[in-house]
Each structure stands twice: as C-alpha cells, then as structure tokens.
Design a binder for these strands. Structure first.
Length: 443
RNA sequence: GCCGAUUUAGCUUAGCUGGUGGAGCGUGGGACUGUUAAUCCCAAGGUCGUGGGUUCGAGCCCCACAAUCGGCGCCA
C-alpha cells in the first residue's frame, strides 16, 4: 500500500518511458469529452496526467471526468517526456482508481478566487479553512521552509555539543511581566503557561553547561501586529562561562546557519516565494554588526525621532533604525531601567545591562533577545528588590546562585519570526500551520 | 488597552443621487480529441453581518452591537 514513486522524481526524469503508479490528489482538471487532463499533486510536486477515452475505456473516463478538485487517486500509466506539459513530463494514463471522492454538493472551498484575493496574505475565510488551506502550494512551501529552519537550529547546536533539554510548560511564575501570562486552572490552584524555558534552563546550566531547546512559549499579549502570536516557537540556549559577546556569537551563528541551510535545502521554495537568493546569501555570509543602545539613540535623534535615553526601543523606532540595515544588527547595553532583573548589570557602568537584541532587516524587527544573566546571589536579590518583584516565586532560581554560581548567558530566538523574515511573508501567521492569536484558537 | 477600516451568493466582488441587486470563479446540464486558471452555451444559488431608527420607499442615511482586518503599545 505504501507508495514508492514520487511526482517530484518523475519530473526529474527518473522514470522516463516507464510504466508507473502515481498516488495523489487532483489539483485541477480540464479537457473535452474525448480527452481529459488531470493535474495530479503530491507532497513533492505536480504532473499532468492525460486520459483518452479510447484508451482507458468509458467507465474510467467518466470517473476521471467527474472527479472534483482534491479527490484522491491512484493513476497508472507511462511517463512521457512532453514539452506541452508543465514540468516537461506527463503521464499517459492506462488506468485510474478514485480512492477518496469529493461530493459535488460540498466542493473543495479553497478556490482560485479565494487564493487570489489573499495574494499571499491571509483572509478570514482562509484562516477559517486553515485545515484545507494547508494543502495549497503556498502553505506547503512555507511548511517545508519551516521544517528546514527547525532542522538548522538543531544541527547548529548539536554540532557544537549542546544538549537538548526540556522545561515544563506549566509554571508558577513569570519570566516577563506578569500581565502577559495565560492562567490555567490546576487542581484547585492556579498555574500558568510558560513564557520561556530560560529560568529552568539556568537550573540545569551547572549540570549541562551548554543546552538548548525548541519549544512553544505562550504570551497573552493582545497584540495585533504581523509579528505576534500568542503561542510561538521559541529556540532558546543557555551557556555557562560565557560573556554577552560570546552569547551573541551563537545568536549570529545560528541565524547565519539557518540562512545557509535554506539556500542548500530550499532554494526552489525561496525562489517560488519571490526571494532573492543573493540577499539570503548575504544573511548567511555577512557578519552581523553590533551597536550599543546609546549609539542607536544618537542615530535616531539625528534623524529627528523623538526618543529619550532610558526608553526601551519600540517597534516604530526599531523600524526607522533598521531601514538602512542590509543584514541583521545587534543592539547591546540597554539601560538597566528598561530590562528585567535577570539581566546582568554591566560591571563597567551600572547604568547598563549586558544584553542584546538582534534586529532583522526588511522591517521584520526583533528576532533574538538575550544576554548575560545576573549570576551572584547578592546581585539577584538586589535587582529583585530594586524592581519590587516578590522573590517568593523565584526561590528556586535564587537557589541556583547559592551553590556555585558562575557567569553565564543565553538567548531566545523567535523561530516563527525567523521563518517569516527569511520567507518574506506578509504576516507571521503564514509560516505556522495553525496560528494562535488573541482572536483565534480555531481551527 | 487605544486608533482606523471592513461586512452583498460557497469564494472574490460591482452596485450611480435612496426607487424591484449584476458579474467572475466554483457547482449542475450541454458542446468540443492537446488543454495549461482551457474555451463556448444554459441553469440553480441572495431576508445585502445582527438589531433598531429615519423615509412613501434603505444594500446605500443615522444609532447600537458583533465578527473580521490593519496599525500602535508590549515583546520573540
């Protein structure tokens, strides 16, 4: 029953002149009462199948003629090289079996008009029918790109002997501000969905020294932007004995490795999305410049932007700043008052913390946030006090500093944001199969 | 949380100054032996988001609500 012939291989010329059996779904049909053209789709590509009435017989011909888009079929025939067929190959059909028919009362709803209106973006209708939209060529392309991005992150860290490590998704305390926590009932108590793997990773840092994960994080932000999801995939790393600069080296390393992996594995997909391969090549090959927060403020002020020292840089300002960037840039050394307690204060100037954000070009904004962690027990207690954060929820975290605290750091990378940026998507929703935002948890 | 916009057939849309809502795709029927989103002919399919108001008369004007979309704040 398993299939062993893939349409992509047929289009590559692996079966020219041979008798084959193809399994797939109807993408489109056309023809007359004597000859029918069925464009068959599988996960690897499409091919035109030609059924002639006098060859296949009346019954099979009528079956093909009445089969609607997205019916599943098994088609037997001979592979023919023919310029008239898209892809250069076609199947001259000798026999057909309709496996899963489509009811004419309920034809496949994702029509050309629905796709055309979306024009690569998303409409309410397509989001409501996401389970069916997944099998269109644009979504298939996005999902293949996404798979390569995940694979590249794993291979980057594993090749450097990082250990993959899992943290719980039910947690008791916040990493970011408490207002963005999803509260869930937990046997009469309250628990929250995790916002980050970080605090639990820091607990394992003395055991594993180099660790990473790719896992979902949850943030109850009512953000209505093309960069936000409430459930997003978070690639995080934590490394012992490392400085802010050394952590940044890994951030740069993994992002460049993702870009070069996409060029290796998905150049066809990149091109079908209209991406310039030279541009992606530049992301893979160029070093990412590093700029201190103060420098960014000066640049913005010189451009006439109304911004004061001490403010966190919001997206509208990031956007102005990144306009002139042709590769991602790191922003480092933010003012202490703009960042939470776990960022280590710069020993050379206590107005700053040793942190970094990586800003993607082309208007895609922040894709990495990270830095060196506050690692001594005294410092972390002082920072919590300064912030007015109650220390009870973080007792286990403070404990990790009491027994052999060492300098360390890490970062979190928004995997969906990276997918969105590198594929040139109009919206982050386009790169995840079932997007979750403040207005949508279905389908 | 704030600001702005949209809602007409399964989908995508047109709709003039307020005077009996048109089309393309899809579906069904018919014609056609090489089509590329095939083409040609025909048909079915609409209480115009919901509720109220103004008017002799509302898809169109007013109010409320809802859903959706875009942007901001916050972040990955």
């Amino acid at each position: 029953m398993a299939k062993d012939i893939w349409i992509g291989d047929v289009q590559n010329g692996d079966y020219d002149g041979q008798e084959v059996e193809l399994k797939g779904w109807i993408k489109r049909t056309r023809g007359s009462n004597k000859i029918r053209f069925v464009v068959l789709r599988d996960s690897t590509g499409t091919i035109q199948c030609v059924a002639k009435r006098d060859v296949v017989g009346d019954d099979a011909f009528e079956a093909v003629a009445s089969a609607l888009i997205e019916s599943s079929l098994i088609v037997r025939g001979t592979v023919n090289v023919d310029e008239r067929s898209e892809g250069g190959h076609e199947l001259v059909v000798s026999g057909v079996e309709i496996v899963g028919p489509v009811d004419p009362e309920r034809p496949f709803p994702i029509t050309e008009s629905a796709m055309k209106a979306a024009d690569g973006g998303e409409t309410e209708f397509l989001l409501d029918n996401r389970h069916l939209y997944l099998r269109t060529s644009r979504m298939t392309t996005m999902l293949k790109m996404r798979s390569s991005v995940f694979g590249a992150i794993h291979s980057y860290f594993r090749d450097l002997d990082f250990v993959e490590y899992q943290a719980p998704n039910f947690v008791a305390g916040a990493v970011e501000g408490g207002s963005t926590l999803f509260e869930v009932p937990y046997f009469g108590r309250k628990a929250y969905l995790t916002q980050s793997w970080q605090l639990y990773a820091e607990a394992a840092m003395p055991a594993l020294e180099r660790l990473y994960t790719i896992a979902p994080s949850f943030r109850a932000e009512k953000s209505r932007t093309r960069r936000h999801l409430t459930e997003f995939w978070h690639a995080e790393m934590e490394i012992a004995w490392a400085t802010n600069d050394e952590v940044m080296n890994h951030g740069e390393g993994v992002v460049r490795h993702i870009a070069s992996t996409l060029l290796d594995e998905r150049s066809e997909e990149l091109q079908s999305l209209g991406r310039d391969l030279e541009l992606i090549g530049r992301y893979a090959d160029s070093p990412f410049p590093r700029m201190r927060y103060d420098e960014a403020i000066e640049i913005l002020q010189a451009k006439g932007v109304d911004v004061e020292w001490g403010q966190d840089l919001d997206y509208s300002k990031e956007k102005i700043l990144t306009q002139d960037f042709d590769v991602p840039h790191f922003l480092t050394h933010y003012p202490k008052i703009a960042k939470p307690f776990y960022h280590r204060v710069d020993p050379e100037d206590d107005k700053y913390v040793l942190c970094h954000d990586l800003l993607a070009p082309e208007g895609y904004g922040e894709i990495i946030g990270g830095g060196e962690r506050t690692w001594s027990e005294q410092e972390i207690l002082a920072r919590l006090e300064e912030e007015g954060t109650p220390k009870e929820a973080y007792q286990f975290y403070i404990d990790t500093r009491s027994y052999g605290g060492v300098p360390h750091g890490g970062f979190g990378l928004g995997v969906d944001r990276v997918c969105s940026w590198l594929s040139g998507a109009d919206h982050i929703r386009e790169v995840i199969p079932f997007p979750r935002d403040s207005r949508r948890v279905t389908p």
